[in-house]
């Protein structure tokens, strides 16, 4: 029980990393999905390469690539433009969030692409016939419906990234599982500490599931009686 209370100290870190990564990832994913659907030359190829790389390599490797690969680049740029800072002054959590955003973006782009493709092309044509531009058609007609279709999978991604944040302890960010390790190393009750961490993760997951259910209802209300 005391272990559980100590784990709660690490809860904000876990949630912060998850929410930031998912939010940035969502933006990346939407852009990537649109690029791939509309086949913008060159950018489509880059987007496809990004998705296949992210999905083809483990999340821990993304973290290492960013953590070990980025600082020399940042330092070189900072030196060239005399920005007066080094990569050391960037908190490690930034590297973690950046890396997980890229990971989340890669996975979610496929979810969003599937969502957009699920909306009948006839709807966009109908929107055009009403004089809407592509942007308007996407924003007003396609995205709301695509979001509803994608929501269950997006919540899946959210949960996946949240559980993936346990890797952040590699870069000495104390998230829930890391905290469990620390607590256990003081009293050698590993099993209890890990059970407490598991319950905490499960609790957040159930919360996310409930939230998704509520959101789904609301979004689908908007669509009820529609064409989707």
């Amino acid at each position: 029980m005391t272990a559980f209370l100590k784990l709660l100290q690490a809860l904000p870190t876990t949630l912060l990393i998850t929410i930031i990564s998912i939010s940035i990832g969502f933006v990346i994913a939407t852009i990537v999905a649109l690029l791939r659907i509309y086949k913008v030359s060159v950018l489509t190829q880059i987007a496809s390469a990004y998705v296949t790389f992210i999905r083809g390599t483990p999340m821990l490797m993304h973290l290492f690539l960013i953590y070990f690969g980025l600082p020399p680049i940042i330092d070189a740029i900072a030196k060239k433009f005399q920005l007066g800072f080094t990569s050391t002054s960037i908190p490690l959590i930034v590297f973690v969030c950046f890396s997980f955003s890229l990971t989340a973006g890669g996975y979610m782009s496929e979810v969003i692409r599937a969502g957009i493709l699920a909306i009948n092309r006839g709807q966009i044509e109908a929107a055009y016939s009403l004089g809407m531009t592509t942007a308007q058609a996407l924003r007003r007609i396609v995205f709301p419906q695509a979001l509803a279709v994608s929501l269950p999978n997006l919540s899946n991604s959210f949960i996946g990234i949240m559980h993936g944040t346990t890797l952040a302890f590699t870069l000495s960010i104390t998230e829930i599982l890391g905290q469990a390790n620390i607590v256990a190393s003081t009293n050698w009750k590993f099993f209890e500490a890990f059970i407490a961490a598991a319950l905490l993760f499960w609790g957040i997951t159930i919360f996310v599931e409930k939230l998704t259910a509520v959101l789904e209802k609301r979004i689908n209300k908007y669509n009820r009686g529609g064409v989707a």
């Binding site: 821990l60 290492f64 953590y67 070990f68 080094t86 990569s87 050391t88 490690l92 302890f169 590699t170 870069l171 000495s172 104390t174 890391g178 390790n181 620390i182």
Partner: peptide, 19 residues
């Protein structure tokens, strides 16, 4: 105390860089 799980093997660079 800054804890980590040791998988990154970056203790040397963390100390040398002043983190």
């Amino acid at each position: 105390i800054v804890y980590q799980n040791g998988a990154a093997n970056d203790q040397v660079s963390q100390i040398a860089s002043g983190r």
